[in-house]
Design a protein around this nucleic acid. Structure first.
Length: 448
DNA sequence: AGCACA
């Protein structure tokens, strides 16, 4: 009575599926042979051969469930077994409902790009860098990365084929800007084709896959340490536990970074409850409190390593704080509790208009101007702010204010004084790339 | 001869 059916993976009967699992196939069975086998019963819409350790298994997917049932039923009662090249093949319903194929390339333009990253250090390119690069062309819905014989590859999903093709046209054959990459790593060239996918299935956020449309997606179990206290970072190194409070330190602070600048930058991801600024080791640091961990994670991932101002000025380094609720004793120019409704009390009306950054947001000599990305037909020193993809690329990593203050988070019915016209002008929409239909990272109501 | 990526 050693019933194999007690092992779920060897159940004798599978529930019907459009997908059939085939085994005992001859060596190097081709897709054509599989189609030939299935054709009498219906339309084979997809196949996958050379599956399994011996590469002698395969899947075929019919257009219709009834066609799969017809094939199974036929061979269940036939005296002639199913055969390929005279070899008996065994078939049953697959335990999956559709074939997910890695036939990643397509001939026609689609909304998903297949990106191959070439270069000795290609696999050191993080999914966040890819996200940044491709976000310059529009909202990136999802990214998955994987390693195949072709090397390190990624699938990047946009809303539509138009956005995807603008990214493809701009980036194919170009190098990822070195300033986005870790130190001392070689050039990484992007080779881009269209993928046959239209909607990637991302089950959890991990170091290999992201779904930017669903911030509530669970983090991959594989990316969480057994204790659960520490999560594993993009490079597999341990990180401090996540927190709703971020610790930001500001490097290369050529320009004053005020409470209001920080509030604006961090408000792009959700309501900022409290900010406390202080000096440490000769540099400026700030604690930024969000209502929840999730928002803080979003903000950290988006902002880490980026500069508030163009030209590498005021670079942010962000980690999770051990704090969870800051105690703000007094509202002044270095600390503020935005949850206190008494706006009259906290209104020093600082405005960065009094500081130089307004005129220096776009430094005259842009150090990154198109040298790596700019198409040869354009003037590298003169990125066209509203027309070129180059401006978009540059805007993403270097002018966060320009992009993020576009639609900062505002509490319903509230117009904080620090969101005055001075602030908005500094982030003038003129710097936004044309394709900046990119939704703001945070919208009230979107995240429950 | 028994189910594919993260």
């Amino acid at each position: 009575m050693a019933s194999v059916s007690s092992q779920p993976q060897f159940r004798l009967t599978q529930p019907p599926s459009k997908v059939l699992h085939l085994r005992n196939l001859p060596w190097e069975c081709t897709e054509e042979e599989l189609i030939e086998l299935g054709k009498p019963f219906g339309k084979v819409v997809n196949t996958k051969c050379n599956v399994g350790a011996n590469r002698n298994q395969a899947f075929i997917e019919f257009a219709d469930l009834n066609q799969a049932i017809a094939m199974i039923s036929y061979y269940a009662s036939s005296s002639e077994p199913a055969q390929v090249r005279g070899k008996t093949v065994y078939l049953q319903y697959s335990n999956r409902q559709e074939i997910v194929n890695n036939k990643t390339t397509a001939d026609v333009a689609g909304n998903v790009l297949l990106v191959t990253i070439e270069g000795a250090d290609a696999r050191l390119v993080s999914i966040d860098v890819l996200h940044l690069v491709f976000s310059a062309f529009g909202f990136v819905h999802k990214i998955t990365t994987f390693e195949k014989t072709a090397g390190f590859q990624a699938l990047v999903q946009f809303s539509d084929a138009e956005t995807a093709s603008s990214a493809k046209n701009a980036l194919d054959g170009r190098n990822i800007p070195s300033y986005l990459l870790p130190e001392h790593i070689g050039p990484c060239t992007l080779r881009i084709t269209y993928s046959a996918h239209t909607d990637l299935s991302v089950k959890f956020q991990s170091h290999r896959s992201r779904d930017y449309t669903n911030p509530n997606l669970p983090v991959a179990p594989s990316a969480i340490d057994g204790g659960g206290l520490f999560s594993v970072g993009l490079d597999g190194k341990k990180l401090e536990p996540e927190s709703n409070v971020l610790l930001a330190s500001i490097e290369n602070m050529q320009y004053a970074v005020t409470l209001d600048v920080l509030h604006m930058v961090f408000s792009a991801f959700g309501p900022v409850q409290k900010i406390a600024m202080f000096d440490k080791n000769g540099g400026l640091q700030a604690l930024i409190q969000y209502p929840d961990v999730q928002t803080a994670v979003l903000a950290k991932e988006a902002l880490e390593g980026h500069c508030i101002y163009d030209g590498g000025f005021c670079k942010l380094h962000i980690s999770y704080s051990r704090h969870h609720d800051l105690s703000i004793k007094v509202n002044n120019d270095r600390s503020r509790d935005y949850t206190i409704p008494n706006t009259a009390m906290l209104n020093p009306q600082p405005s960065i208009l009094g500081h130089q950054p307004v005129s220096t947001i776009g430094p005259p000599a842009h150090p990154y101007s198109g040298t790596q990305f700019a198409p040869p037909t354009e003037h590298p020193a003169m990125p066209q702010p509203s027309a070129g993809w180059a401006a978009g690329v540059l805007a993403a990593p270097h002018s966060m204010l320009a992009q993020m203050s576009n639609q900062p988070y505002l509490p319903p019915g509230a117009m904080p004084p620090q969101m005055g016209p001075g602030m908005m002008s500094m982030a003038g929409p003129s710097r936004l790339p044309q394709g900046a239909a990119m939704p703001p990272p945070y919208r009230p109501g979107q995240m429950q």
